[in-house]
């Protein structure tokens, strides 16, 4: 029996700290904590392939989403339209530095960094180019978990469109379409990335089998 010779592995629930033996999962299965019901570990289907393609698509869509005008207004014969990047520039021009920097961070910088991070990770796994630096890289990637706010910005666009429809003529541009697609891609890319799998693979590739697992 080869399985018995392996050191015993633990998993702990992130939410309530309950300790379990590590379950063996097939792709698409997930294990739930018996005490609080949150997901313990999950094996996502075809994780590397999917996150590679979603993040690649996201990075391609990034440029039109940021640079093409999202929407425009016409009032009293004057027309004005703006893209996401224009938003940041105009806000800086008019001295609203705080919202300008936050908009840049949450709606442009963080999503881009997360997408390229996911692409780099899945690329290294797909073509088997694992480096020890990936350990640090993936840890840093987790710092940005909460700070991508593309979905909130999307709702913001919808709300301001409603607002503007009230007393102006509103036109929707290609930028909005690519922004929506960009949002879908970045959401799917981060949802497809199987963190447990990546960590385990990295551990097997670069670290000695661990002593902490053997205490029972």
């Amino acid at each position: 029996m080869t399985q018995k010779k392996q050191p015993k592995q633990w998993v702990a629930c992130q939410q309530c700290d309950a300790l379990f033996d590590k379950p063996l999962l097939k792709q698409g299965q997930s294990a739930k904590c018996t005490r609080c019901g949150s997901v313990l570990v999950e094996r996502k289907v075809d994780s590397i392939e999917r996150s590679f393609h979603w993040s690649l698509a996201g990075l391609i869509l990034m440029l039109p989403a940021i640079l093409l005008p999202l929407m425009g207004v016409t009032l009293a014969g004057q027309h004005h339209q703006a893209s996401l990047f224009d938003c940041v520039l105009v806000l800086i021009e008019r001295d609203f530095f705080m919202i300008a920097s936050l908009l840049f961070l949450f709606a442009i910088a963080v999503p881009i960094v997360r997408l390229s991070g996911a692409l780099y990770l899945s690329y290294s796994f797909k073509f088997n180019r694992l480096k020890p630096s990936l350990l640090n890289f993936f840890r840093a990637y987790h710092h940005l978990d909460h700070w991508a706010m593309l979905n909130v910005f999307m709702l913001g666009i919808v709300v301001s469109m409603y607002k503007l429809l009230d007393d102006t003529e509103l036109s929707v541009n290609l930028g909005l379409l690519s922004f929506i697609l960009w949002l879908v891609c970045s959401t799917m890319a981060s949802a497809a990335l199987d963190q447990d799998y990546i960590w385990e693979e990295l551990e097997q590739a670069f670290l000695e089998p661990n002593t902490t697992d053997e205490i029972a």
Binding site: A100, V152, G156, L164, T168
Partner: peptide, 19 residues
Amino acid sequence: PWSMLDVFVVALMVTIVEL
């Protein structure tokens, strides 16, 4: 993060309604 909504709406309004 959803409370950032108002901030984004104002940011968009400032940029787009500039006639």
